[in-house]
Design a protein around this nucleic acid. Structure first.
Lengths: 163, 163
DNA sequence: CAATAATTGACTAAATTACTAGGTTATTAT
DNA sequence: ATAATAACCTAGTAATTTAGTCAATTATTG
């Protein structure tokens, strides 16, 4: 399980879909504009999301994308796994290079254990959870109050507007 | 908070240190061999880990690295934050592009909220937790506390094996 | 038919990852 | 002292991933 900006884009786009009150499909062009993600990049992401059965598409005028399942059935881990290439956590491949010396793979197992914990955690968070959480605990959503991570040196590299 | 192979390398290397019974420092060459990570790459990672105060170094023969704190004081999020560049979660930079239309930044906030929850979760898992968990000798399950529900109702979905 | 919007594929710049090479210091053992 | 050790540092580089462009095609609607 990786957690990169690519997955963040996908989650953000899916949240955009989830928050739509309309039962009509939303166009990628609209998502692109609202979330400031390039249209072509969204096309790549939604190609994977569709193949994984997370969204369904409607072609032609009035078309677009809709969630293929209920919000509470789509977890964050589903979305991230759909757009990320999956890599094997163990460098040794799991079998071959390990039996030689005993200590070799212990930390691999430790990481795998942690990894599955993270995966379990993220698979327990659905689109419905996030949307409800936001609607309940928020009265005035604006950008100013987006909480920042409080670790390490905050370099506050202000994101350039990369439209 | 990003979760990449780079962070995984760092966590793996720190686990290697954590599992050492010896009170003597461990060399990067040893970690490199045991964990199959290139020595020079480890040097880069440990340079950051040292500057963040997670490890301490001893130079010269018999030297190497040791944890700078107790195992239960070093969380996974500390390690990952130490080696990763931190990026701004909001694309708009926080101010400029947002006030125009209201819907623009809602999902940004949603993501930021999710992001901080992941961070909270990972900061609740320490090296001691992972090592104890692996040794099977844990009755405390200190990860359980941070696993308590932050969102709404949670369906404990078993993690699919995709990593 | 014309406009819309998904779908596909090939291609590219930029960034990040993972690693190599070659040095310099500080410390220990001989 | 000196030689070996191992951290520390700088620069570069190949491979991969990210993020995006461009150009076509296909299906649907009006």
């Amino acid at each position: 399980m990786r957690l990169t900006t690519k997955g963040r884009f996908a989650v953000t786009a899916m949240l955009d879909l989830a928050m739509s009150e309309s039962d009509k499909p939303l166009t990628l062009a609209g998502i692109s504009e609202r979330q400031a993600i390039s249209l072509s990049y969204l096309e790549q992401l939604f190609s994977r999301l569709r193949k994984q059965g997370l969204v369904k598409s409607v072609r032609g005028p009035g078309g677009g994308y809709q969630l293929a399942k209920a919000q509470h059935e789509i977890s964050v881990s589903h979305i991230i796994a759909a757009v990320d290439e999956l890599i094997d956590a163990t460098q040794c491949g799991g079998e071959e290079n390990c039996h030689g010396d005993e200590g070799r793979c212990i930390t691999h197992d430790l990481w795998a254990s942690l990894n599955s914990k993270i995966l379990t955690y993220l698979s327990g968070i659905t689109l419905a959870d996030i949307v409800n959480d936001q609607r309940g605990a928020n009265k005035k959503a604006s950008c100013e109050q987006s909480q920042q991570v409080v670790f390490g040196p905050r370099k506050t590299r202000t994101a350039e507007v990369l439209s």
